[in-house]
């Protein structure tokens, strides 16, 4: 028998083989710049995978029957981020798949990045139990920590823009050795170091380094899909994602709001009590360049009074974290009164 060629069909078969014979999931990362066809590559791989699964279902080798329509797939198995996917994953059957198209630029948003990584770890854990194929598309490797990269099985890397509706993806496989996979997943870190050290663009440098790396498997060519699929994909997956992103950037967290408020009140309090500024002076400070009064003197007075009445909060209450959004920080007076009540009852019992 002739040796098989490295194609998307071959990769889809490998995924199905891993599910059937190894009872294992497959985590594939697709990495590349914007508009290089990452989603197309993911969808093309998915098409092959669905073909294999349909055949398996006909031969009664699997219990999962893939849906016929793309719209059903987009609604059920696709998500814009790991958090969104975690909501959907409960309803997914075994040996199906998860498709996360991380189009959001959360890399610049430190705390969102941490949350994203936590969600992603949870997602990988759940996908592993259900023997799912996880296709994770990312425009930034910074979004993925070493732990996450270490858990990925394959990486499809796109280093060029498409030409004539075609593009090439390089396939990298992760190391079997857990230590190596954890410290240098896909052998990428020396490559990144080498490229950043060059400080300028050397044509073909990325490909040269990748192809000489021992994690390099080969390169494969993929084509564009039907335009209607893209339109549907944009409407059902991308646009809700952009909407959520807009919502995310529009609002600040309550923790951040409380912190800013506390800082502003402290400034007013210090100016009033320590620097002996009058309320009229403080009101002038809170007037913008167009002459609008942002805070009236009565409001400022109220804020100063609040600060004067406030007792020293706990150290924990001062260090705001994202978790505080969900949790309630009890006031110190409440705790003290509770403690006094307990000690009173103890004394009376004695």
């Amino acid at each position: 028998m002739a040796s098989p060629r490295l194609t998307l069909d071959f990769l889809a078969r490998i995924v199905a083989y891993r599910q059937k014979h190894k009872e294992s999931d497959t985590f594939i990362i697709i990495y590349g710049r914007r508009r290089t066809g990452k989603s197309t590559l993911g969808l093309q791989l998915l098409r092959r995978y669905l073909k294999v699964k349909n055949k398996q279902y006909r031969e009664k080798k699997t219990t999962w029957k893939p849906e016929h329509r793309w719209a059903q797939h987009f609604q059920k198995y696709f998500a814009g981020d790991a958090m969104d996917m975690l909501k959907k994953i409960k309803s997914l059957p075994e040996e199906s798949y998860v498709f996360v198209d991380e189009g959001v630029d959360v890399a610049s948003w430190q705390h969102a990045m941490e949350t994203e990584q936590k969600n992603l770890k949870e997602l990988i854990l759940k996908a592993g139990k259900r023997k799912l194929l996880t296709i994770f598309i990312t425009p930034s490797l910074r979004l993925l920590s070493k732990d996450i990269l270490a858990q990925a099985h394959y990486m499809l890397l796109i280093d060029s823009e498409p030409r004539d509706d075609k593009n090439v993806a390089h396939v990298l496989s992760n190391y079997d050795d857990p230590v190596l996979a954890e410290n240098n997943p896909f052998g990428l870190y020396p490559i990144i170091k080498r490229i950043t050290r060059a400080k300028r663009h050397v044509p073909g440098m990325l490909y040269n380094l990748i192809s000489s790396s021992d994690s390099y498997v080969g390169s494969l060519v993929y084509k564009r899909l039907d335009t209607r699929i893209y339109e549907l994909y944009d409407a059902l997956v991308k646009e809700p994602l952009i909407y959520r992103q807009r919502q995310r950037t529009k609002y600040v967290s309550k923790a951040l709001y409380d912190k800013t408020n506390y800082v502003l009140n402290t400034v007013f309090y210090n100016l009033y009590t320590k620097d002996n500024k009058s309320l009229a002076q403080l009101e002038r400070l809170a007037t913008d360049k167009f002459g609008n009064t942002l805070l009236s003197s009565s409001t400022i007075k109220r804020r100063i009074n609040q600060m004067a009445e406030a007792t020293r909060p706990d150290d924990e209450a001062l260090s705001w974290t994202d978790e505080d959004e969900a949790g309630i920080v009890l006031p110190r007076e409440y705790l003290e009164s509770e403690l006094e009540a307990i000690s009173d009852t103890n004394e009376s019992e004695q």
Partner: peptide, 14 residues
């Protein structure tokens, strides 16, 4: 390299 590498790595008979 290529498909053979994955087959060898995964221990799969073609």
């Amino acid at each position: 390299r290529g498909a053979r590498k994955i087959l060898e790595m995964e221990g799969i008979d073609p």
